[in-house]
Amino acid sequence: MLRYSAMRLLLFIPIIICVTFIIFALMDLAPGTIVDTMITEEMTEEDIEFLRSKYDLDKPMIVRYGKYLGNLLRGDLGSSQITGLTVWSQFSERWPNTMWLSLFSLMFGVALAIPAGILAAKYAGTIWDNITTAIAMLGLSMPNFWLGLMLLTVFSLKLKIFPAAYDGTWRSFVLPVVANGFAMIASITRQTRSSILDVSRQDYLRTARAKGVPERQVTTRHKLGNAWIPIITQIGMMLGVTLGGSAVIETVYSWPGVGYLMVEAISRRDTTMACGCVILTATAYSLVLLLVDLVYAAIDPRIRSAYARGKKRRVKA
């Protein structure tokens, strides 16, 4: 298991290299440079040339990338090319906002989705099932930025119940959490419903009943013991997605999180900042997925032994 985790972390190095290269290339291909965002009317040609050479823009992209990687290897994520603040300081300042938003969204989603899924499974084929399915489809097909904007219009502009942007209070969490959580509700509800239905048909429940296990224990020990494995996976994936991908919601709500930071950096052609944010977000994402995998292995012996088997084979080879 330890070996597996180490492998997963090692695999992370090529991913970082690829991702940073892609960002560098895209930023280079995108029209405009960081210098274009700084030019003022009083600047002379020499001033502009000086700025360009200051940011190495007179050198090929690959040279800049090499320099960046070199720094990265020494653990230096660099500083924002605009504000001069280090990437790490900016990221660590913004990160809690994103994390809380993600966690609350997930909690909101899970708190509604799991009971809804259980209900849908219990009354499968009835009107309750159809209602939850319809809501789930709605959540799945509605883009979260659209829902975010709609919530903003209704509850913030018209009704003035909740603030439109982050103000540090719990009230400002409500709208982004709902907008972010709604899409999760859809997929977690569907997953809960189908895995409970799937497990309910399994023969081992009959075996349990035949040996005299009381019905409540059949549900808690045998049914849920199996049903929550795919649900956990789904939740873990959702957490990963919102940690990395709340950029849209953060932009809609001017949320001082990592996603917004990244979007700002990209639009101002601040390559170091954008790259740094991507690296750190990707790291968080992979760590979460690794954690989910470990939880998965802890609750499912079949997965556990698949890891063990892989280990044995490697030893033999």
């Binding site: 009959r206 075996t207 499912d300």
Partner: peptide
């Protein structure tokens, strides 16, 4: 039961 493959709880 008939099918031993499915009549034991996998976890």
């Amino acid at each position: 039961f008939q099918d031993p493959m499915t009549s034991l709880n996998p976890v």
